[in-house]
Design a protein around this nucleic acid. Sequence first.
DNA 1: CTGTTAGCGCTTTCAC
DNA 2: GTGAAAGCGCTAACAG
Lengths: 337, 337
Amino acid sequence: MIKGKITIHDISKALEIDSSTVSRALNNSPRVSKKTKTKILKKAKELGYQRNSLASKLRTNRSNTIGVIVPRISRHFFAAVISGIEETAYDAGYDVIICQSLDNYEREKKLVETLLANRVDGILISISMETTNYSHFKNYIDNGFPIIYFDRPCEVDKNTNVIINDFKASFEATEHLILNGCKNIVHFSGPQSTTLYQKRCKGYKAALKKHNIPLRKEYIIESNLMENDGIENAKKVLKLPLVDAVFSANDKAAISAMQYLKTKNIKIPEDIAFVGFSNEPISAVIEPSLTTVNQQDFEMGKVATTLLFEQINNKSSINETKILEPELIIRNSSIKK
Amino acid sequence: MIKGKITIHDISKALEIDSSTVSRALNNSPRVSKKTKTKILKKAKELGYQRNSLASKLRTNRSNTIGVIVPRISRHFFAAVISGIEETAYDAGYDVIICQSLDNYEREKKLVETLLANRVDGILISISMETTNYSHFKNYIDNGFPIIYFDRPCEVDKNTNVIINDFKASFEATEHLILNGCKNIVHFSGPQSTTLYQKRCKGYKAALKKHNIPLRKEYIIESNLMENDGIENAKKVLKLPLVDAVFSANDKAAISAMQYLKTKNIKIPEDIAFVGFSNEPISAVIEPSLTTVNQQDFEMGKVATTLLFEQINNKSSINETKILEPELIIRNSSIKK
DNA sequence: CTGTTAGCGCTTTCAC
DNA sequence: GTGAAAGCGCTAACAG
């Protein structure tokens, strides 16, 4: 701590004006005359006064701070959501505390407690992959504490989620391949324990059905969708006959699979076309032919924060799920067989 | 705020034990009997007590929180530094507040003030590119407030910096190319207003000198090293005769240049070899032949945090620069002409 | 428009 | 080992 921090009392003494007036002036209250206000502001600057937010928050019981918990800040999607959150929050005069759970349940639990101990006014969270037990939220939900879940929804009890329409996105991505002449479309699917991947799989199936393309079980390859999985999946694809396109449930697997196929001299998109989930800009650099899905990251941050503020100000019900519409980003329209 | 938050007084009343004893018990003071301690802890759990950190921090004048300001959390380097910071801080029982300046001076200034208003015990910062005026730190430095600058040092007055040895890294990277048979090495350089890029350029020059390779001015291409610059630089390289290698002062420009050269059917590394700065794992995926420099990100976070704690506890002088040794990551040893 | 007073929830002497 | 009491810095009635 800085020694000898200046308080409103120091200003009060120096000017022989009561500290309550100093406080009012510092908060730009209309109930202080312009004259004394400027006098106080000048002195405050002169002495290097800096408000003690802790004391202020304690007294007012409002922190003007919201907490954000995401699995990893380095992931482009979350970084973009955070930008949206910060923009909305700063405009409203709120501070933002960013935390990463690293997809670890214990850590997430601890972070929630820390944020609450610091009396944030609300929490925005994308729950960790490990989290299946929601008891660390239960108490607060019941208490009406403002929490908004985004991207990875919390589908127990009543609460507010902000997600994208995964079914529709997958449906459209798959249909995009079909409309470009592909018929033998493999799906790189994720863990079916996650509802998100269930939905992406359903969208794939629905598109096939609409276009009367028979569903082949061996065309759905399930994995954890990491980089390595993409390579393994690509090997499996090479063993299947007739594959002319892949719809991957995320971008990591899609990209590494493409990279692998390239080393085998299989040209993309002429021989095998890919569509992946992602709004990571680097995807476009790595694979200019990769059609991806705009996950509305920045927008999601803004929407979630706006909803949170409504809850903080008791204007909204606690039970709504906002579904954002994704859009296909087609970078290479020549994906034609 | 949650209505009807439980305080130590609620526990005090329920148990008819004074609140000071409750406080002691909750802080695991040895001056409370085991019996009452367990009784209090049980009741606290039962009532769903959660410490009010604000009050505690206000009273003790210690926040047990450090602030971190980086240009962008999405950049892998900073995300990795933050991981190192968090690990060290959590082990020491500290919380971490993460902020991004977005390389904007005004925002950085405001963040510093916010962190100080929230009475963090110290700040770790990588200053924004825009920052040339350090007055927003001056007051605190003079006051002895613990601030550590990492990666992008603050080279005015006395303060503590943690950086990597950019000169050495560049020297070794360039020498790596020379030892692999390259003689006509272009350097993609960054803005010479930044000392960091000056150092990287000097390292390049020194390596050439050591191996008696004449320095050609047209081989040093200066730009902002963004993705677009890489492409422009690549075009310039194609117009130069005899180029057999490039040492780029960062990875973005290196990668996009490589991508561009590929589209022109110039194969890497056979025709033109690259070496870039980066520990972004994706680099290896995008360009398996790219030799990069390990910037000791995670380690830098740990070192900087350790130094900060030493300052917080008044154990270290305010005037030291810690230089970490980078290491070359050679992924493809066949870079030979 | 300004001053008086009380208190947010916690910690910490100082008694006993 | 426990209680009484004061106070961190600020804000917000309530007076005047």
